[in-house]
Simulated scan of single mutants.
Amino acid sequence: MKIGIVVFPGSNCDHDCRHVFQDVLGQTVAMVWHKDALPAGLDAVVIPGGFSYGDYLRTGAIARFSPVMTGIKEFAAKGGMVLGICNGFQILLEAGLLPGAMLRNRELHFVCRDVFVRVENAATPFTNACVPGQVLRIPIAHAEGSYYTDPVTLAGLQANAQIVFRYCAADGTVGTEANPNGSLDGIAGIRNAEGNVLGMMPHPERCAEALLGNEDGRLIFASMLETMRGKRSELKMAGV
């Protein structure tokens, strides 16, 4: 499989994502500079975490105008898998590929620690290696991670199973105490209506190998690879 990882000025998790896909999972990776076009033949695109453009103006607000975003929007419109992690999630929101916005954390502080998230929808291209209700321990590192949207959009997300992850306690209980940033409805990750675009605030690339003492994040990438293989098989059977 060939995965494109986008690099913006200020990205700092791009090589972490490359390491997971290339060195841990043995896949082909193309590092894509924000001013360049997406290369052909990609199976998925990852927009990594960091501080694109120094988070000036608003997180992700400037990155949305980078030339590469035109190609990402076209890629997603054709059904291509797009994963946005932390700042990548913020960029997807600003670019309109996902609904809603990010606010400052409830306590107005940068938060960097492990949290628990509950898998609300295991029937997505990004979570098919999980089971419904499974609890994952994944690190977060953000100052603007409080997801917000209007009541009508929230109702739609809930009704269409677009909420993929919610912050929770170790036993899976969702509530204020388990919510590290004040995110609406405890939301830690959402998908688009079509299901091929996922944004999540936690960093699965930071917990994807045994060397780090936690492999929960690997389930996200394993799910993606299984989906990509399935798509390749379908195309091969169709003679494409």
Rank of each mutant, 00 (worst) to 15 (best):
F65E: 01
L57G: 10
R64P: 12
Q22L: 05
D43S: 09
F165W: 08
V174I: 14
S11C: 02
A101C: 13
P202H: 00
G133A: 13
T59E: 15
L42E: 03
I163K: 02
L136N: 08
E234K: 02
M102I: 15
V111C: 12
G26C: 08
R64H: 09
P151K: 11
V131G: 11
I187R: 00
G145K: 01
V117M: 03
G156C: 08
S66G: 15
D23S: 05
I47Y: 04
F8W: 08
I163W: 13
L108T: 09
A208R: 06
R58S: 03
N121G: 12
P39Q: 03
M200H: 03
H34S: 09
N87F: 04
G79V: 08
K231A: 05
C168W: 13
A61Y: 08
G217F: 01
H19A: 13
L25F: 09
A222F: 15
Q134H: 11
D171C: 08
A188P: 03
I3N: 08
L184T: 05
D43F: 09
M1H: 14
A76N: 12
V119R: 13
L83P: 15
R64K: 11
R106W: 07
Y147V: 09
D114P: 11
W33A: 06
G54H: 07
N179W: 10
D43Y: 10
P132N: 14
V117R: 01
A122W: 15
G156W: 05
F51Q: 00
L98F: 02
G145T: 06
M201I: 00
A61K: 04
I72F: 07
F116D: 04
R137T: 13
N121C: 02
M1F: 15
I72T: 07
R106D: 03
A208P: 03
M200F: 11
G26I: 03
T28R: 10
V24Q: 09
T70M: 03
A170P: 13
G88A: 02
R218F: 14
I220P: 05
E120V: 11
S52W: 13
R232M: 01
A40C: 13
L92D: 01
P204K: 10
N214V: 11
E177P: 14
N179M: 04
N121Q: 07
Q162I: 15
V117E: 01
G54D: 09
A222Q: 15
G189L: 05
V29R: 10
